[in-house]
Computed example of a mutant assay.
Amino acid sequence: MEAFLISTGIVALAEMGDKTQLLALVLAARFRRPWPIVWGILVATLLNHAIAGAAGAWIMAAAGPNVMRWVLGVSFIAMALWMLIPDKLDDENALPKRQMGVFLVTVWAFFLAEMGDKTQIATVALGAQYDPLIAVVLGTTFGMMLANAPVVFFGDAITRKVPIALVHRVAAGIFAVLGVLALLGVGS
C-alpha cells in the first residue's frame, strides 16, 4: 500500500501545471467530449507508466542497491529543481490532424507527451525503489488521473483558483526531501 500511496501523491503533485495537464485542458477545450478524453488519458498513462516502472525495476536489478541509492537520491533532487521550472505546452497544434476520434487522439497525444516528462521520470525512479511494481504503476496512474480528470471537466475554473507556483514549490520540497533521504539510505 505504501508504494501505491507514495506513487499517487508524488505524481499528482508533479503533474500540477505540467505539460500533460495543459494538454488535457487543450483537448477538453478542442473536443468538448470529456469521457473519451479521460479514458484516453487513463489508457495512455497505464501504457507509459507500465513501461517506465518496468524500466526502473530493471535498472534497480542491473545496478544494485548501492548504486541505485545514489541514482535515486540525485534523481529526486533533480526532480525537485525541475519542479521549479513551470511547463508550457510546446505546440498546441501538435495534435494529430487525422480523424482518429477523440479517444485515440488523446491516447496518442498523451503517450507521446508523457515521454521524458517529469511524471514518467518519477515513475522510473519509483519503479526502482518500490515493490510491487503493479502498485507503483497503479499509483502513478491514479495520481495522473487525480490531476488530469478534473481539468478535463472543470479546467478553466480550476486553473484560476489553484496557485500552481505554490504547488510546484511544495512538490519540489517533497522531491528534495525524498532525494536526501535516499542519499542517506533511509528506508533502504
Score class of each variant (00 low, 15 high):
117 D>Y: 04
152 V>C: 02
116 G>E: 08
117 D>E: 07
43 V>K: 02
78 A>N: 05
114 E>C: 06
125 A>D: 15
80 A>M: 00
30 R>C: 09
41 I>N: 08
58 W>D: 02
32 R>H: 14
93 N>V: 00
96 P>S: 06
181 L>I: 09
107 V>F: 00
62 A>H: 04
171 A>W: 09
163 P>R: 06
45 T>E: 09
64 G>E: 02
145 M>S: 05
22 L>M: 06
158 I>H: 02
188 S>G: 13
32 R>M: 13
122 A>I: 04
60 M>D: 11
93 N>W: 01
111 F>R: 04
142 F>Q: 08
108 W>Y: 08
22 L>T: 06
21 Q>A: 11
27 L>D: 06
15 E>F: 10
95 L>Q: 03
149 A>Q: 08
127 G>N: 10
71 V>P: 05
43 V>S: 05
80 A>C: 05
153 F>Q: 09
157 A>T: 12
30 R>D: 12
29 A>D: 15
180 V>M: 14
32 R>L: 15
33 R>P: 00
74 V>D: 05
56 G>D: 02
25 L>A: 11
166 L>R: 15
185 G>L: 10
33 R>E: 05
173 G>L: 08
110 F>C: 07
158 I>V: 15
130 Y>G: 01
82 W>D: 04
99 Q>K: 09
151 V>K: 10
165 A>K: 14
50 A>T: 13
44 A>E: 07
185 G>C: 09
93 N>M: 11
155 G>E: 06
115 M>L: 14
114 E>R: 03
30 R>L: 13
136 V>Y: 03
122 A>K: 04
66 N>P: 04
70 W>N: 09
105 V>K: 00
141 T>A: 13
43 V>N: 02
94 A>N: 13
170 V>H: 10
57 A>M: 09
89 L>G: 08
40 G>D: 10
30 R>N: 12
58 W>Y: 15
185 G>T: 11
95 L>S: 02
116 G>C: 03
82 W>E: 01
74 V>S: 04
181 L>N: 14
175 F>D: 10
152 V>D: 02
58 W>M: 12
172 A>S: 15
179 G>F: 08
55 A>K: 06
19 K>Y: 11
149 A>L: 04
52 A>I: 07
133 L>K: 15
61 A>Q: 14
100 M>I: 00
51 I>A: 09
90 D>Y: 14
173 G>E: 06
34 P>D: 03
51 I>L: 13
58 W>F: 11
164 I>W: 02
113 A>D: 14
2 E>P: 05
187 G>Y: 11
149 A>V: 13
48 N>I: 07
23 L>G: 10
77 I>P: 07
22 L>P: 09
145 M>R: 07
68 M>K: 03
36 P>K: 03
163 P>N: 13
43 V>W: 10
67 V>Y: 11
133 L>Q: 07
147 A>C: 10
62 A>R: 13
158 I>K: 09
6 I>A: 07
90 D>G: 06
78 A>E: 04
100 M>H: 00
